[in-house]
C-alpha cells in the first residue's frame, strides 16, 4: 500500500517533501496514473498537487501572465486572459485528449511530463514562456526551453515544485496557427504538431514569425533560420517550400507504433504548407 497525499498549500507540500523526499508529484494524474495502475502506485508515495492554492489559476501583472502549474487545461482554455493574449496556447490545449482528460490534466503536468508529444509545449516555446520553480530553500526561474532537457527529462530537482508558467504579455503576434496530426481526431497523441505565430502587415508581409514543432525531435523543434525565412515575405508557396526544406533537414524524429521517422519528417514539413496565403488582412 502506498500513500497519496493531497496537500492544499505549498507549505504543506514542502513539509511532506521533507518527510518523504522521494515522493512523486502529480496533479491531474492523466500521465502518471495511466500506466497500469497498481504498477504505478508501487512506485509511490505520491503528492497530488491539484488542490494547492498557490498553483492554481491564471493571473496577470503589468507585463506578465502567470498560469499556475495546477491549472487544469479546461480552465486554461476557458480563461479570457489566455484567449485574449495567447490564443495559440489555447488552441493547442484544445487538441489534448478530450474534455475529461482536459478537466484533469494540468499545464504544469504537460510541461513536467516533457513528452515530445506534449501539445502545449510548442506554443510555450514560441511564447518564450518561463517556468517558475520553488523549493524549501528558494525559487528560480528559467526559460521552458532550458527547463526541458530531453524526452521526459527536465531540470526539476528533488524537493522542487513547478509552480507556474509565466508568459510575457507583449508578444506582438497578430496571426496564429496550430495543427496537430494524430491517429484520430480526439484522444490522440501527436505524431507531429505545428505551432506558428506571426506579426504580419495588412498585405500579409511577415514582420516576424516563430515556428515550433512537437513530436518530431527529442524536444520541441525550433529554428532561428526557419523563423528568419519568413521575415519580410508573404506566406506564398516559394517561401513555404523553402521553409519546408529547412524543416525536413532540421527535425530529428523517431519511429514508434504511431508513425515512422520518415512520415514524421515529411508531415512536419508538409504542415507548413497549410499557411499558404495566410496572414493577410489581420
Amino acid at each position: 500500500m502506498v500513500d497519496v497525499r493531497v496537500p492544499s498549500s505549498l507549505d504543506e507540500v514542502f513539509r511532506l517533501l521533507r518527510e518523504e523526499p522521494s515522493a512523486r508529484l502529480f496533479a491531474g494524474g492523466t500521465d502518471v496514473m495511466v500506466r497500469s495502475f497498481p504498477d504505478t502506485l508501487r512506485r509511490g508515495p505520491f503528492l497530488c498537487l491539484e488542490r494547492v492554492e498557490e498553483l492554481r489559476g491564471v493571473n496577470e501583472s503589468a507585463t506578465e501572465v502567470r498560469i499556475g502549474a495546477a491549472t487544469r487545461l479546461s480552465e486554461l482554455i476557458a480563461s479570457p486572459l489566455v484567449a485574449d493574449r495567447f490564443p495559440l496556447l489555447r488552441e493547442a490545449a484544445r487538441h489534448i485528449g478530450a474534455p475529461a482528460v482536459r478537466n484533469m490534466g494540468t499545464l504544469g503536468g504537460n510541461v513536467c511530463t516533457a513528452s515530445p508529444a506534449g501539445d502545449t509545449l510548442p506554443p510555450l516555446y514560441i511564447l518564450d514562456a518561463d517556468v517558475e520553480l520553488r523549493s524549501l530553500t528558494g525559487q528560480r526561474r528559467m526559460p521552458i526551453s532550458a527547463f526541458i532537457t530531453g524526452p521526459g527529462l527536465t531540470q526539476l530537482e528533488e524537493g522542487e515544485v513547478l509552480c507556474a508558467v509565466v508568459i510575457g504579455k507583449a508578444q506582438g503576434f497578430n496571426f496564429h496557427h496550430f495543427e496537430k496530426v494524430g491517429q484520430r481526431k480526439a484522444m490522440a497523441i501527436s505524431i507531429a504538431s505545428l505551432a506558428f505565430a506571426a506579426r504580419t502587415g495588412g498585405d500579409g508581409t511577415v514582420v516576424k514569425a516563430r515556428c515550433a514543432f512537437g513530436s518530431v525531435a527529442p524536444t520541441v523543434f525550433t529554428s532561428r533560420v526557419l523563423d528568419d525565412t519568413f521575415s519580410g515575405k508573404t506566406l506564398d508557396r516559394d517561401v513555404l517550400e523553402r521553409a519546408a526544406a529547412i524543416i525536413r533537414e532540421g527535425v530529428d524524429p523517431i519511429s514508434d507504433i504511431r508513425a515512422s521517422m520518415e512520415y514524421r519528417r515529411q508531415v512536419a514539413a508538409n504542415l507548413i504548407m497549410r499557411l499558404e496565403g495566410a496572414g493577410k488582412d489581420r
Binding site: V34, A98, Q183, R184, K185, A186, M187, A188, I189, I257, R258
Partner: peptide, 16 residues
C-alpha cells in the same frame, strides 16, 4: 504484441 492498450489500439471517436 506491439499494441497493448486503448492508447495504441485506435478506434473511432465521435469525431471520426
Amino acid at each position: 504484441h506491439e499494441t497493448g492498450d486503448m492508447a495504441t489500439y485506435i478506434v473511432p471517436t465521435s469525431l471520426d
